[in-house]
Amino acid sequence: MGKIIVSGASGHFGHAAAEQLLDKGAQVIALSRHVDKLADLAARGAEVRYADFDDPASLAEAMKGGDKLLLISTLRVGSRVQQHRNAVEAAVANGVKHIVYTSVIGGGLAEHPGVEQKDHYNTEQLIMASGAAWTFLRNSLYAEAVATAMAIPALLAGSKPDNAGHGTVAIVSRDDCVAAAVGVLTQEGHENTAYDITGPELLSVPQAVAMISDMAGKPIELQHVDDEGMYRYFDSLGVPRKASDIVPDGPIPWASEGMVTFGQSIREGLFSVLSNDVERITGRKPRTLKSVLEQHKGEWPQ
């Protein structure tokens, strides 16, 4: 199996992936800017290394000795392609033979309205040109985001503005995304393949919100708005519109253009993708949105 490098190992996805790889007996090199958060992985035998995707010198050291790299997309929409390029170049220069990348549904489309998708598309292209074998895990909308970031404000306000219309998306649990990544990294035959990592059913945002409302026993008024109306809503919260307007280390580390164009992409049918790739890779059926909502229901306002 060789040594597997896991980037972003202090984040939810990376930490869970590193734990599961260790469970399978893999040799893990765990990377993070916050190595103090990796003590539990080090205690289990992982090599823990400092890595900053904005610092190519740190990456040259961090990537040594690895055979495979789980490249977890960074969070800085609009400027992360260069971060990914730095990581890929350092990995290939150090002999990494296979790069597994967490992309997004539609990541292979050259024409797409989504700001986030453009980052993923450009990253996929540079990985394919790197000379390493590749696997793209094109993840759908996280069910955990629906259960928390969507559900909690909607329940507090009793309403939710939304620009996704009645477009559908196969909402997927992050648990299944992690399991698929671990499967690809520990099994044979996944090189130079792209997978659509989706949940088991296509749902619209109105259907998801209705499910939340029913489970909470509280009404939520879904307000259908156009893209500009969605921008105005985020403006009212003080969210910058563009990634270039984000204040470094400020209170809001994301921009509304990513959210608005994500909703637009759902409305235009670009997320209406349903696949059985999770079950093919992991041997188990993906979790339903309802099961994830039930898991997080205790975090909802009473």
Score class of each variant (00 low, 15 high):
I4L: 10
S7C: 09
S10N: 13
H12E: 14
H12N: 14
A16N: 11
A17M: 13
E19N: 11
Q20P: 00
L31N: 03
S32L: 12
E47R: 01
F53G: 09
A60T: 15
E61W: 00
K64V: 13
G65M: 07
G66Y: 06
L71H: 06
I72D: 13
S73M: 10
V77K: 01
H84A: 14
R85E: 15
A87L: 13
A93S: 13
A93T: 03
V96P: 02
K97G: 00
H98Y: 08
S103W: 08
A110T: 11
H112T: 07
G114E: 10
E116I: 15
N122W: 13
T123L: 09
Q125W: 03
L126C: 06
G131Y: 11
A143F: 02
E144L: 01
V146I: 15
A147C: 00
T148V: 10
A149Q: 14
L155H: 05
K160F: 12
K160H: 09
H166C: 02
T168V: 11
V169D: 12
V169G: 01
I171S: 08
D175R: 15
D175K: 15
D176R: 11
C177L: 09
A181F: 07
T186H: 07
A194S: 14
A194P: 00
E201V: 14
A208R: 05
V209H: 02
I212N: 03
G217D: 10
D227M: 09
G229F: 07
Y231A: 01
R232I: 00
R241N: 05
V247Y: 01
P248C: 10
P248D: 15
T261E: 12
G269H: 08
G269C: 06
F271Y: 15
D277M: 07
E279K: 15
T282Y: 11
R284T: 12
P286Y: 14
G298D: 10
W300N: 07
